[in-house]
Write a protein that binds this DNA or RNA. Structure first.
Length: 722
DNA sequence: GACGCTCTCATTTTT
DNA sequence: TGAGAGCGTC
């Protein structure tokens, strides 16, 4: 490959990063500054210029998507597929290491991975077995706290046990039971993958040295999101001789709540005194006004490495701000703007609606639906998280390992086969008292005839079923199909009036498909492990929520999930104190700083046009609130803003809302009637053809003489003057 | 085992 | 307000 090709088309800073001498390098990559490009070019540089072997390179990301993208962009650039090169998420890399050294860490080779849901179920079971209720602590909270300890590298034995606080006591108790259960059954949760690997590298000098000498080059993406245990992992793998490149943006650190520590990137030189640092500040995504807004907002934060984004593109359009009357009016504003965007030839696909919390999506969904605009909400359940898929996977798990209690618990009575709580209580009782797996306990219960006849039959039937599903040496796809047919899951769905049952059946068929595809992609040496590798992948990569990029729809998502994406038109909605910044975060300086970084992330998603909106009035948890506009709007220089409605001037705000609402309100006073004629300020004359909803949710369909049929939101008309 | 009632609770989430 | 969990009833 031609070396000049590696540097052509890069700016100075990017070029410096790509061609930097081997050593410890931190690249602070602002939003839209070509971060992935630098990573990919750097790896190509290592291969072509430094003559490094792919085998000596480790690239770590946070998501499977990012890992996949890195590999495919690299291979596209090189023109061939790389083997021996490790690129993956922290979790998948640790999984790989643990599998390779499973005996050393006391795991069976095909150890199972517990996801969040499995963990909660397990904790619930432990609580039940010990007659604990959720008064002190909810199972879900307990899981969070235990995971938090693990993220800090703290085992049960490392904790302070001198506590009289009943909540803490209970957590300690649960942690111990949970840890024991996982250890005895070779179960590993997400954090455990990291923790166990870190302990392995820490305690086993031989293995540590092996990886240290193998991975001469380590690259880490999104470094600002590393938590303590991930940081420890990188620290253990990299020595003074390692060529370490970390890429990240301290201003985009938005995952503090799940253990990410921004200090890892801020204070990296404390661990690596030779550290060099390069900033990428030229932005290739957004127009000048948008960058000005982003720079101004983030400048309010202390504790930054400090950078300012700039662009060679012009100022672009002003940022449009809309102060809505209420939350329905806000959706009206957004859909109207989208409508005109599309009418002037734009795509729905250009548009993203970003909000702070998921609950906000509902109203936008309703509005888009009413307007027949195509949309897609991100962040719903992923493929492998869907209940029916997890059920099917649980069959596979239990078939592979009869002592997988989590799987057993999940499907013993799915589809229903007459194994009720009473039967299970007996089984669990035996399992607890005799220290048996649920499977063994079932066998014991059956052998000793501890159950009434009918229950015995049902339980026996289940055991026989699972035994009969065990099949060796048939292709994974077919195996999956046998499991689905044999388990009766598909028939069960077909026979019932389950909601969205067509989708569910389709998902199960897709699962067979996924299994088949997975097996086809496996290397020859991995084929014997197809089932367990498939199970691992199902746990570690929950599958895309994203549909094909060829369809055209408005995209709705939280600000968090928008990170890394870009859109020509962005709406950030609900910019109100209490919502964004969220009330839970507003009073703690650190958390407020993180909210501000989130605003920065949101603003920098926009390429051409950014819309910001907030509402004068909003119903929240069943109560009417009159929030103040978000401080983040005030932090943006007024010169880049254009108020479509409202504004910093309160008087003006009132006048506009009065003027705008009155005509419709006057016309609809005393109730709305079908057939009634009205005059709309924008659409002119029309006749009401349908009325829907009540109060502020009331909507009318009007057939306009010149513009045809439209839905209007009547809340618009009901302005209460304060 | 399905249904309906009451109660509780309310960010952000990848692996 | 409204979603989801838990509980009691048929």
């Amino acid at each position: 490959m031609d070396v000049s090709e590696l540097l052509n088309g890069l700016n100075d800073a990017q070029r410096q990063a790509v061609s930097s001498p081997l050593g410890h390098l931190r690249v602070i990559a602002g939003a839209g500054s070509g971060k992935t490009r630098v990573l990919v070019h750097r790896i190509a540089w290592l291969l072509a210029v430094e003559n490094s072997s792919p085998y000596s390179i480790l690239a770590v990301t946070f998501t499977n998507k990012a890992a996949g993208e890195m590999r495919s962009r690299l291979e596209e650039m090189l023109g061939y597929a790389l083997s021996g090169f490790w690129v993956g998420t922290f979790h998948s890399i640790c999984h790989r290491m643990l599998r390779a050294h499973h005996e050393r860490v006391n795991l069976i080779r095909d150890f199972q991975i517990l996801d969040r849901d499995d963990q909660v179920r397990l904790i619930k079971r432990i609580m039940k077995a010990h007659d604990l209720n959720e008064d002190f602590i909810k199972a879900r909270q307990a899981v969070n706290i235990i995971s938090g300890y693990k993220e800090q590298g703290k085992r049960w034995a490392d904790l302070d046990h001198q506590t009289f606080n009943p909540v803490e006591k209970q957590i300690l108790f649960l942690y111990e039971k949970y840890e024991t259960h996982c250890r005895e059954n070779s179960l590993v949760d997400f954090t455990e993958l990291l923790l166990r690997t870190v302990e392995l590298l820490r305690d086993d000098e031989l293995i540590r040295k092996h990886y240290q000498s193998r991975f001469r080059h380590i690259l880490v993406d999104e470094f600002q999101d590393t938590n303590d245990i991930q940081y420890a992992f990188i620290r253990l793998l990299s020595t003074a001789e390692t060529d370490l490149l970390v890429v990240g943006d301290d201003d985009q650190s938005i995952y503090g709540f799940r253990g990410a520590r921004i200090e890892h990137i801020l204070d990296l030189e404390k661990s690596y005194p030779q550290l060099k640092s390069i900033k990428l500040e030229q932005n290739y995504r957004s127009s000048g006004n948008i960058l000005n807004a982003a720079n101004a907002v983030i400048a309010q934060n202390q504790e930054r490495l400090g950078k300012d984004l700039w662009t060679e593109a012009g100022e672009g359009e002003l940022i449009e701000v809309y102060q809505s009357i209420n939350e329905y009016d806000e959706t009206y504003y957004v859909t109207e703007r989208i409508k005109s965007h599309v009418e002037s030839g734009g795509l729905y696909n250009d548009v993203a609606i970003l909000y702070r919390s998921n609950a906000q999506s509902r109203l936008f969904e309703e509005a888009l639906l009413a307007e027949s605009m195509p949309y897609r909400i991100y962040g719903g359940l992923r493929f492998f998280d869907r209940a029916e898929v997890k059920d099917a996977i649980a069959y596979l798990r239990l078939t592979e390992n009869h002592h997988d209690d989590v799987a057993f618990d999940r499907i013993v009575n799915v589809p229903t086969r007459g194994i009720g709580t009473r039967t299970l209580d007996v089984v669990r009782e035996v399992a607890t008292s005799q220290q048996l797996s649920l499977w063994q306990a079932s066998e014991y219960v059956l052998a000793n005839q501890l159950l009434p006849n009918r229950a015995s039959q049902a339980l026996g039937g289940f055991i026989t079923l699972i035994n009969s599903l065990f099949a060796e040496k048939i292709p994974l796809g077919e195996y999956m199909k046998i499991v689905l047919d044999g388990s009766g899951l598909i028939n069960y769905l077909k026979s019932k009036k389950v909601e969205k049952r067509e989708d569910k059946i389709e998902n199960l068929e897709e699962l067979v498909n996924a299994a088949t595809q997975f097996a086809l992609r496996l290397d020859e040496e991995d084929k014997p492990d197809a089932v367990s590798l498939f199970l691992a992948q199902a746990a570690l990569d929950a599958g895309e929520t994203q549909a094909s990029e060829f369809s055209d729809y408005v995209q709705l998502m939280t600000l968090h999930s928008a990170k890394g994406l870009e859109f020509p038109q962005v709406f950030i909605v609900g910019l109100e104190e209490g919502l964004f910044p969220h009330s839970e975060s507003a009073s703690i300086a650190e958390q407020l700083a993180e909210e501000r970084r989130l605003a920065y992330v949101g603003i920098t998603r926009a390429e051409k046009k950014l819309h910001l909106s907030y509402s004068e009035k909003r119903r929240l948890y069943g109560e009417t609130t009159y929030p103040r506009p978000s401080r983040f709007i005030e932090e943006i220089p007024h010169t880049v803003l254009h108020y479509a409605r409202g504004g910093p001037d309160h008087l003006r705000r009132q006048q506009i809302s009065k003027g705008r609402g009155q005509s419709l309100r006057e016309q609809t006073e005393g109730g709305v009637k079908l057939g009634q004629n009205i005059i709309h300020p924008k659409y002119g004359e029309g006749t009401i053809t349908a009325v829907e909803g009540e109060g502020e949710r009331q909507r009318i369909q009007v057939n306009f003489v010149e513009h045809g049929s439209k839905w209007l939101i009547l809340a618009f008309a009901k302005i209460e003057m304060k």
